[in-house]
């Protein structure tokens, strides 16, 4: 459903991406791993159409639809994709959430942006999604400023998944959380993604996260993909020396 060929991106003199190819199939979770600064976030933003690559192309195929080049799409079309079929989960939920708006309003926003105009139904759907992400429905009118880090991330996930997108980009969704909170969140993401059949491009520097969630993996080093394949194969039998280093946890975490 998403494929990229020959992606290149530079920040001034820094080469953040070079000759990157990526393919993603419907319903598949693909992990992008690598140490900090290897270009994972940049790749995610280029794939999602947020950053225009200096080289290469990204193609997206709608169900039974034509293939469209993401960076050639008119802006309104791209925005519509981002509000409906696509989702983006930021590492810092405060970047995505409206902190001065209630939890219910945060979850309901994408529904309203998609044209929902029945308050009762929007609220019921928001309540259902709060329950899905294990947030007490009694908190529906509370502002996120009163939420813990784990709750904020779960709220962001509810807000993203409420329109049941086909494709979600996630940037270190469990980064910066306590280990026990991480485990619960990972479990939740895995359950929801499987049940809804969502395709995910998941950026993480944590190989355990990749192993738990992703069927396939690409390993990045200095802006290049050095190895890719089935997660278990790559992690159990790494070919590239850099992957071997990562797996032997010299560079991990």
């Amino acid at each position: 459903m998403l494929s990229a060929r020959g992606l290149g991106f530079r920040f001034g003199s820094i080469t953040a991406l070079e000759a990157v190819d990526v393919d993603l199939w419907p319903g598949e979770v693909l992990a992008v791993v690598g140490e900090s600064g290897s270009g994972k976030t940049t790749l995610l933003h280029v794939l999602a159409g947020r950053l225009r690559p200096d080289a290469g192309q990204v193609w997206y195929r709608e169900p039974d639809g034509p293939r469209t080049e993401v960076h050639a799409m008119p802006l309104p079309l791209l925005r519509r994709l981002h509000r409906s079929d696509w989702g983006f989960v930021e590492q810092d939920p405060r970047q995505a959430l409206r902190m001065d708006v209630s939890a219910g309003g945060n979850v309901g926003e994408r529904l309203m942006a998609a044209g929902a105009r029945h308050y009762g139904r929007i609220r019921a759907e928001a309540a259902r999604w709060l329950a899905e992400v294990e947030i007490d429905v009694a908190r529906i009118d509370d502002r996120p400023t009163t939420f813990s880090g784990g709750m904020l991330q779960r709220l962001q996930i509810a807000r993203t998944l409420v329109t049941e997108p086909r494709l979600v980009f996630m940037d270190e969704p469990t980064g910066g959380l306590d280990v026990s909170v991480q485990a619960r969140l990972l479990d939740l993401i895995r359950t929801l993604v499987r049940r809804l059949g969502i395709a995910v491009v998941l950026v993480t520097h944590d190989l355990a996260v990749a192993r738990l969630l992703a069927a396939r993996i690409v390993v990045m080093q200095r802006g290049r993909v050095v190895e890719d394949g089935l997660t278990d194969q790559v992690l159990d039998d790494p070919r590239h020396p850099y992957t071997q280093l990562l797996v032997s946890s010299v560079l991990a975490t």
Partner: peptide, 8 residues
């Protein structure tokens, strides 16, 4: 969408 959030 943001304006409707305000009404919500």
């Amino acid at each position: 969408g943001a304006m409707h959030v305000r009404l919500y």
